[in-house]
Design a protein around this nucleic acid. Structure first.
Lengths: 340, 340
DNA sequence: TTGTACGCGTTATCAG
DNA sequence: CTGATAACGCGTACAA
């Protein structure tokens, strides 16, 4: 146990000054490495020792109050699960920001939208905010700007005119999938659209697929499905019972749904890819583990995380009112294995 | 576009007062719903209108500075991935805290430990901190307390004497798995211990398994493995080539590793559970998707999240120096399917 | 209801 | 290097 006196109030820079036998000014100079101030190594060491002794941590709020802005960056949790990508995006962003002395805080509230969300983030007076486009209107962004947020980066399907957007286009995923299936000669194509949490991105991926398929004059059979083996099995059995109505290729929303369908199709006596081809999305490790191995549209989330961070850092350097450069967009590609 | 004048400084409560034609005191009374102050509905409405008009968001830092404590709760990202559990734990915690007007922020820095970590969290002067035991010493906790953090909840393997701990015991997972396999008559048991990020929890799960098995006088064959198909296949082939040395039951670190081994075993010509039983951990949807369907030790993370939140809320009401009650512990159970 | 005045912890300025 | 002073935005005690 540390031998410091028990006190119920946090130590202040004044406490540090007293303990070190110097002035508060000196403490501030040492802690902020102020260049022009001739602080001897001896006093500097005394101050740092006192800091350690007291367990002093500068009050971020007071500091931000004084400086007009702090070193917080708010990362608003995307409303729909980005899948495995999210962890690596957050971690890389955090590391990059830490290099600049900025602290990344993930703001978990997914229920807030528009100005409500912006107000919640603005309370923290962050230096930058990263959020998804569909929770931010022009008004939200303006609100943030007025609260001193210098950088706003949005992530989402659409490029919006009022803030830089890193595009993670879901429709494009559907289009790429469609192109792949069409190029392989498939003409009877079906799609799984998940219900529940994933409904929104499911809608987008489906829309992209359907749009691309439509350019050839064909249509897509749409099947809304929860993540449920029985429902999947019912669908597979219906296909097994009706060879003429059965699709020859299936775009599952992601690898998990694809694996679910793989299982159901096999249980219904259909073979993959013989009777029906199956295509997943995300290129997760799961692809290699199922039988047959699953072809999948890779989002290249690693590249995406990289781009994300690069953009953020570049934007941090620009002023809040300068125009922003062209931003990168995801480039989904199909990783071909056995199933499609 | 909002018609408010463009200004580069955030609106303050004084601005709101001016816009509403009232005093700053009144604004504060309205915004904080101060009971004793007789504010007419008319003025209240005027104030709220001005708030909306200006897009006013109270400065959390200043507020906390004045009040001595804010409404932030820091959730320090666990150092090892908790798997799918983490999202639900965070979301439930956030919702429960939001009901009390507290804001949950996930502090993503996994690299900090001990007092360094505590200092980083303390800068925000949060009301409560949730962190993992292995990053917190008695000194860290003391540090937080001295910085006005009223509640510290730890999550981890061990119960520690200096703070309430919600136990998510990994060794216990291994023990339960061992008991299951032993009860089924297995005597030649092997275990996969993952390398990389998951090495630490892997070590713990293995330790629990080995300890339980040791009580019967038997030993466990340990195999360190990355998540890599080739390595898994090599292991499976070695077992296929040596029937006498082959284990009859395999404890894989989690469902993903179990699925990986399932795949490798099949590729090596071994049957599951005929030649070798396989047991995963986490009871993920994956279990139903692989062939044969995977038996798995369920952590009951949903119950765990519930308990986690309940504990946190109860502790928030207690004073920082009161003793804490007995805390719940995870109760892993085996969900038996086809593989073991 | 209003205005005034203070202090929370920090940094900055400026004359010793 | 010190010491005094001011300001950031907010909440509140107090007297009107």
């Amino acid at each position: 146990m540390p031998q410091v006196p028990r006190q119920d109030k946090a130590p202040t820079s004044a406490d540090v000054a007293r303990a070190a036998g110097v002035s508060r000014t000196t403490v501030s100079f040492v802690l902020n490495d102020v260049p022009g101030s001739g602080i001897s190594d001896a006093t500097r060491e005394k101050v740092l020792a006192a800091v350690r002794e007291l367990g002093y941590a500068p009050n971020a709020g007071a500091r931000a109050l004084r400086a007009g802005t702090g070193n917080l960056v708010v990362y608003a949790m995307p409303r729909w699960p980005l899948g495995p990508a999210i962890n690596s995006v957050i971690e890389r962003t955090r590391a990059a920001l830490a290099d600049r002395g900025l602290v990344l805080l993930v703001h978990g509230d997914r229920s807030l939208t528009g100005t409500d969300a912006a107000l919640a983030w603005a309370e923290l007076r962050p230096r930058a905010v990263i959020a998804d486009t569909d929770r931010c209107t022009a008004e939200s962004v303006d609100l943030l700007r007025r609260h001193g947020v210098r950088t706003v980066v949005l992530v989402g399907e659409e490029d919006v005119p009022f803030a830089p957007t890193v595009r993670l286009a879901q429709r494009k995923v559907g289009r790429v999938a469609a192109r792949h299936l069409l190029d392989r000669g498939h003409r009877r194509i079906a799609a799984i659209v998940p219900t529940g949490d994933l409904a929104e991105p499911g809608e987008l991926r489906y829309a992209g697929l359907a749009a691309e398929v439509a350019t050839t004059g064909l249509a897509v059979a749409r099947h809304d499905l929860g993540f449920d083996h029985d429902a999947a099995l019912a669908l597979a059995r219906a296909w097994a019972a009706d060879p003429d109505g059965r699709p020859r290729a299936l775009f599952a929303y992601n690898d998990e749904f694809a694996a679910l369908m793989l299982r159901a199709l096999r249980d219904a006596g259909l073979s993959v890819p013989g009777d029906i081809a199956v295509l997943g999305v995300d290129d997760t490790p799961l692809c290699e583990l199922v039988q047959p191995r699953l072809s999948s549209v890779a989002l290249h989330t690693s590249d995406f995380a990289e781009a994300h961070v690069r953009v953020l850092l570049e934007l941090l350097d620009r002023g809040p009112h300068e125009p922003w450069p062209e931003l990168p967009e995801n480039e989904p590609r199909v990783v071909v294995r056995d199933s499609a």
